[in-house]
Amino acid sequence: VEDGPAGQATASKPGEIEDPSGRALDHFFEALEKTETEGGQTRVCHYGDSPITNDGITLTVRRKLQLRFGDAGHGFILIARPWGWYSHANVSHEASAGWESDPISISRGDRLYGLGGVSFTTNRAGVTASFGTTEEGDTGRSVSSFIIHYLKQPGGGDFEIYMDGTAYARVSTAAEDTRSAFHRVEVPNGPHKLTVETVGNGEARLFGVVLENGGRGVQYDSLGVNGAYIGLLANYIDPDHWFEQLRHRRPDLVIIGYGANESQFERLPMDQYERDTKEVIRRIRTALPGVSILFIGPMDRGARGAGGAIITRPMIPRLISCQRRIAAEAGCAFFDTFTAMGGEGTVDLWYKAKPKLMGGDFTHPTAQGAEIVGTLIYDALIEAYEKRK
């Protein structure tokens, strides 16, 4: 098949999922169909960069999937806010001061960042984080279990669990070896609030909490990290640790949505970028044989050009072409967000729109813009799902 703009296969139309193999999303679609017809749950892990750290794009995809297939729970949330704008919708989430956050980055540490790419530690007593249902909206109003993701380690401290304000359990994070650990708290299905509070008898290291609803439906984890790029998952998270996290979570679909940060480097070494992308695919499939993988290409990202005009960054089409080719060669699906939202010059139009659809950094969409992008992704997934049925 000949390539069109930005390497787009002419057999696909803008806004459609591209899958030359015809099988890349089979596992995900089989899970969705079982959820729709028999009950059960479908899980999605969506990895990405800062445009999803406020849950804007992912909120829309999650909500629409849950309204269609059922609300099986919000999914994974980081323990605290590593960035001021980190937030999740349709859930309550609070954290006290005292957590030291360590987002995945180029570092020489132990590279244990949990499912969501951020580790939180404290030696202090009385440091808290709370998670619960929401009283508003059409999703997120019930929960049947909370799963606390933390690290077992030598000398690890304890944390207390409170359920709806009442002491529930005390958990020790001490162990002879260092490994991922998960503590499940079951509750009657309904509105609840879980709080963890550190005891201060050693370092407590936590990653996040999953909210599950026992009924049929979809869980959708928004796993965005500020400044993230594909190379971090390939080189700067311990692979065995990441395997533990993914295998415990058991997603039916892993979405990889990077490119915004890579696009600022016009001399980005594409050979290294390709090696890193293939390594991430290999790691995911090592942890989760048979899982569906979907690459979501970057949105249009703008910069000031000659005369102050807002232009598309030149690396965006190159990254999209590379992602599309690697996805096709590896049997993964691909969604071209850039073309679906309008292609070259979209940032200029979105920034000048009333109300604005793109922020002044020409990178992060407004709430209205994020809803448009999330709807494009949801519509593409559903169209491909319905064609398969």
Rank of each mutant, 00 (worst) to 15 (best):
V91D: 00
R62H: 10
T139R: 12
R275L: 12
E386F: 08
E36V: 08
I255E: 04
P314W: 06
I382N: 01
G227M: 07
I79M: 12
T178F: 08
D238H: 15
G307T: 05
D348A: 15
A380Y: 02
T173V: 15
K387M: 13
N226R: 06
I17S: 04
F334N: 03
Y378W: 06
R179L: 08
E30I: 11
S101P: 13
V280T: 13
I17T: 10
G190S: 09
V199H: 07
V280C: 00
S101D: 06
R216G: 15
R247H: 04
G231V: 02
L65F: 00
G4Y: 01
V218G: 03
I237K: 14
G217I: 03
G116A: 14
P82M: 05
T375H: 10
Y351G: 03
S263N: 11
F182T: 01
E279C: 10
F120N: 06
F334L: 08
G200D: 01
S130A: 12
R388M: 14
E33T: 13
A97G: 15
D71K: 06
G307S: 09
G4K: 11
F243R: 13
G231K: 02
K389G: 09
I316Y: 07
T37G: 12
D252C: 07
L223F: 02
Y385W: 13
Q323M: 10
R68L: 11
I293G: 00
V187E: 03
D19F: 14
C332P: 04
T195G: 08
D271K: 05
L381K: 06
Y378T: 14
K152A: 07
D164E: 10
R68N: 04
K389T: 10
V127K: 10
P239N: 14
E94Y: 09
S101G: 13
R283C: 03
G224E: 00
G190E: 07
L112K: 14
D110C: 04
G40H: 06
T128Q: 09
T198D: 13
G140W: 00
Q368W: 13
L288P: 02
I372G: 04
G297Q: 10
G165H: 11
D158G: 07
I52W: 02
